[in-house]
Amino acid sequence: MGEIAGLAIDDSGQSLTVVRGVRRRYSFTVDGPDRVGAEDVPVEVTGIVLGVRYLYSVLVEGSTVKSRTIVRPSRNTDVAKVDLEWCCLREHVPADAPALIISAAERHLPEALPRRFGEYEPFQGKYSEAGMEGFGQAWREATSWLFFSGSGLCLGGALSGGPGEQYPDRYWSMSLTLLADPLREAPWRDAVRDLFTTLADTLGAFYASAECIRDSTEIALCTLRFPEGWLGLRPAPTWWSWFGSPYASVADLLPATGRRPTVNGVLFEATTEPRPRDQTEPLSRWLPANLFARIGPKPGHVQPLPLIRAAVVPDELS
């Protein structure tokens, strides 16, 4: 600030004081930096400033900051995406799961808030009108999947229905689809990672993944859960993998450089930035191959690709 014309720093006090002009008249003061965790940042700030890690106290009028704006491609543009998925046993999912999802999105990635939601399109629910309670009620009454649209880099998501689901099975899951390009910037990755691990820890997940899909020519895999039981770990290379019980113990076999503990599990990052499957090491390089589901035959280029159950599935999930 000492290089800005007309401003100078008066460091005579504990705070950094900025003065102006020849007479060094008081202008404003700056305190900090103080390191803060994501939970300490007001949601009002999270909604407009990306990647907050330090707090400065500045008294200045007329300033405005907004760092979350991205250029969203047109609807028909074929772009790389990242699919996030959280897998849980239904009996472990908290009754207030929608409130936990909303709280995590407000804190870490407001773009993932359910702008509109419903069981079919066009979505009838509007978060701006219904709020958290309306979203939670829609989930409790949903007879199937509850879908929603996001904003910014978040294209949308879905979660298994709540107590009102017509044909519930033992497994419950949630997914989000994000644009991949913004995640090449560290602040966006940090925000999404915080959301990813927070939901894995709080929703009672046993496994979660983040997979980069290059474009529409790359065939997606079908879901890992099915009414008769759990299929196993995702067979395609994943950018991020999160392991809760009973998989957390095998995560120790993964390279330490990409592995770190979270509150209730272990996160593994295969690469810094999201990369397509053919540029990412498969987890089976380090973990037992019999824990992974297998990609089945694809007559007629079936999409999504069918999966065959892993040879070994933990007793808790079988």
Rank of each mutant, 00 (worst) to 15 (best):
S249N: 08
S249A: 09
S249E: 10
V250E: 06
A251L: 10
A251K: 10
A251H: 11
L253E: 10
L253K: 06
L253S: 09
L253V: 05
L254M: 11
L254Y: 06
P255W: 01
P255H: 04
P255F: 03
A256T: 13
A256R: 14
A256L: 09
A256H: 14
T257F: 08
T257I: 07
T257K: 14
G258R: 13
G258A: 15
G258T: 12
G258L: 13
G258C: 11
R259Q: 12
R259N: 11
R259V: 09
R259F: 11
R259I: 08
R259A: 08
R259S: 09
R260P: 13
R260K: 12
P261Q: 13
P261L: 09
T262L: 14
N264L: 07
G265S: 06
G265Q: 04
V266F: 15
V266A: 13
V266T: 15
L267V: 03
L267N: 03
E269W: 03
E269T: 01
A270Q: 02
A270W: 02
T271P: 00
T271Q: 00
R277C: 06
D278G: 03
D278Q: 04
D278F: 03
D278I: 02
D278S: 04
Q279N: 04
E281D: 07
E281Q: 02
E281A: 00
L283H: 05
L283V: 04
S284K: 03
S284G: 05
S284N: 05
R285F: 00
R285P: 00
W286Q: 07
L287Y: 03
L287D: 02
A289G: 14
A289T: 15
N290L: 14
L291H: 05
F292S: 01
F292Q: 00
F292R: 02
F292V: 01
F292D: 00
A293F: 11
A293T: 08
A293M: 12
A293W: 07
A293Q: 10
R294W: 10
R294L: 06
I295V: 07
G296C: 11
G296H: 14
G296K: 14
G296Y: 12
